[in-house]
């Protein structure tokens, strides 16, 4: 992504803007660890690449903006394009802990935010029974004892008895963290609404204790992923940056394979990427994603392959295709597609 010098805006032309304020002047808003790895899109791309995650400018831009605008990213795209991987790599890059919340149907606040340690509360009430009578000694009448008890406040509903779940943990993390909320679309509508407070204000309310706010200088970097099995509500979308990761083009995919499976000779790599790209054009129930390409590359290495041939493809087809129907559809075309791949 090179800055193109020959470019101007029609509508903006009327206003004489000073050169838009660069980042260096504004300085980073947030001081999390290793924030220097987020100073520009190119830096992010480089840093991701060092960790084996090849990304296009859009992805890097999203991470860049998420950090500078302090907004969560909602990542959508077909399965296996590296949505979850992006969050994990970001955590690795910033050397922050990655707290992950896997969503599923029926997930509720006691699993996602906090829960009271009932057992502990129970145990303590039992143990403290005797202490209680000591405290109440000398109190006359019921009102007096109740007043005395009130002095102790809500001992059993304090943070000591609170079991933090991923979302709360992320808020309370000392040096910030990366919070990954995986497959939001699998959760219920109610859960989406639960997330809103966290996503817009980086805070959570617990009735018995109050509002817990993230350290304003160390807000967690939040990633949400969705496979689009259902429409995410507008309220949630509005609070997030939206990143769509499509299947990569041939060059990008080739680079990804190279980064992940460096042993693959270049010739084979071009062939297998072309083959996969061809498959994606076909009418399949589930087209192979990047993760399948990588698996296949590994398989071919294990089999000491130098170059694709149709017999080999036939035997290893089950690595890239996960439905019998698809395998049957492709088998008829193998010769054709392999030849195309070999021509490259």
């Amino acid at each position: 992504m090179k800055p193109s010098p020959s470019f101007a805006f029609e509508a903006s032309a009327v206003y004489r803007l000073p050169l838009a304020a660069g980042l260096s002047k504004q300085g980073p808003f947030v001081t999390i660890k290793n924030h220097d790895r987020l100073t520009s899109v190119e830096v992010i791309q480089d840093n991701f690449e060092k960790r084996g995650y090849i990304c296009n400018p859009q992805i890097a831009t999203a991470v860049f903006l998420a950090y500078h605008l302090e907004k969560p990213i909602l990542i959508e795209g077909p399965p296996g394009v590296g949505k979850t991987e992006l969050a994990k790599t970001a955590a690795e890059m910033l050397e922050l802990p990655c707290i992950r919340l896997q969503c599923y149907e029926g997930l509720d606040e006691s699993k996602a935010i906090y829960e009271w340690k009932y057992g502990k509360q129970l145990l303590y009430t039992q143990v403290l029974k005797e202490t209680l009578s000591e405290i109440l000694e000398g109190a006359k009448g019921l009102t007096d004892s109740v007043a005395k008890l009130h002095e102790f406040g809500d001992v059993f509903f304090s943070e000591d008895f609170l079991e933090p779940r991923p979302l709360l943990k992320a808020l309370k993390a000392e040096d910030s963290c990366v919070l990954l909320i995986d497959e939001v679309d699998k959760s219920d509508h109610e859960f989406e609404s639960l997330l809103l407070e966290l996503l817009s204000d980086y805070q959570l309310s617990i009735p018995e204790i109050g509002t817990i706010v993230a350290n304003p200088d160390r807000k967690p970097l939040v990633f949400l992923t969705s496979n689009n099995t259902r429409e995410i509500s507008d309220a949630l979308k509005r609070r997030c940056l939206h990143l769509y990761i499509p299947f990569p083009d041939a060059t990008l995919e080739s680079r990804i394979v190279h980064a992940r499976v460096p042993d693959v000779p270049e010739k084979l790599r071009t062939q297998l990427v072309t083959f996969i790209q061809e498959l994606r054009e076909m009418d399949l129930k589930k087209v192979p994603a990047i993760s399948e390409t990588i698996d296949w590359a590994r398989t071919l290495i294990l089999l000491h392959t130098e170059s694709l041939d149709s017999e080999l493809v036939r035997q290893t087809l089950n690595v890239i295709l996960k439905f019998q129907e698809d395998i049957e559809t492709v088998e008829a075309e193998i010769q054709n597609v392999t030849n195309k791949a070999l021509k490259q």
Binding site: M1, P3, S4, L19, A20, A21, Q26, P57, L69
Partner: peptide
């Protein structure tokens, strides 16, 4: 404010 106008694609 963060991005500026210098780079169209960005």
């Amino acid at each position: 404010n963060i991005v500026g106008y210098e780079d169209r694609q960005f």
